[in-house]
Amino acid sequence: MSDSDEKYWYNLTTGQVERGYVSPAVDRAGPFDSAEEAARAPELLKERARAWAEDEARDDAWGSGSTNESDAPR
């Protein structure tokens, strides 16, 4: 039994926690170390998506306070 077979996954289609590779990869989120953590997958995914969106917004705004080349006098 490999390490991944001992991990838990959240099935995005059924909403069930699974141990090991039960469902196709496209339907799984994980791996997680415990069934409890896997059960929280929807909440964890939302938290991570929010954090990534905030990071991207910060990156997009980086340097926006400085003069843009198109705004510079010629």
Score class of each variant (00 low, 15 high):
1 M>K: 11
2 S>F: 07
2 S>T: 13
3 D>S: 06
4 S>P: 04
4 S>C: 10
4 S>W: 06
5 D>V: 02
5 D>L: 06
7 K>G: 04
8 Y>C: 04
8 Y>L: 05
9 W>S: 05
10 Y>Q: 04
12 L>Q: 08
12 L>E: 04
12 L>I: 06
12 L>A: 10
13 T>C: 05
13 T>Y: 08
14 T>F: 01
14 T>L: 03
15 G>C: 06
15 G>L: 03
15 G>N: 04
16 Q>S: 14
16 Q>L: 12
16 Q>R: 15
17 V>R: 03
18 E>F: 03
18 E>S: 12
19 R>N: 15
20 G>N: 11
21 Y>C: 10
21 Y>F: 14
23 S>T: 15
24 P>Y: 07
24 P>G: 14
25 A>E: 13
25 A>D: 13
25 A>L: 11
26 V>T: 15
26 V>R: 14
28 R>F: 01
28 R>T: 07
29 A>K: 09
30 G>D: 09
31 P>K: 10
31 P>H: 08
31 P>C: 07
32 F>Y: 15
33 D>E: 15
33 D>H: 11
35 A>R: 10
35 A>D: 12
35 A>P: 04
35 A>I: 01
36 E>G: 14
37 E>Y: 03
37 E>D: 15
37 E>L: 13
37 E>T: 15
37 E>N: 09
38 A>M: 07
39 A>V: 00
41 A>W: 00
41 A>E: 00
42 P>E: 02
42 P>V: 07
43 E>W: 02
43 E>Y: 01
43 E>T: 07
43 E>M: 03
44 L>N: 00
44 L>A: 00
45 L>N: 05
45 L>G: 04
45 L>K: 09
45 L>W: 02
47 E>M: 09
47 E>F: 01
48 R>S: 12
49 A>S: 08
49 A>T: 07
50 R>G: 10
52 W>M: 13
52 W>N: 14
53 A>E: 03
53 A>I: 00
53 A>K: 01
54 E>Q: 14
54 E>V: 01
55 D>I: 11
56 E>R: 12
57 A>N: 09
57 A>E: 15
58 R>G: 04
58 R>M: 07
58 R>I: 05
58 R>Y: 04
59 D>L: 12
59 D>F: 09
60 D>I: 07
60 D>E: 15
61 A>G: 05
61 A>E: 13
61 A>V: 00
62 W>G: 09
62 W>Y: 13
64 S>H: 08
64 S>P: 00
67 T>Q: 08
67 T>K: 07
67 T>W: 07
67 T>E: 11
68 N>F: 05
69 E>M: 10
69 E>K: 14
71 D>G: 08
71 D>H: 14
72 A>H: 09
73 P>A: 05
73 P>Q: 06
73 P>I: 01
73 P>N: 02
73 P>G: 03
74 R>I: 11
74 R>S: 15
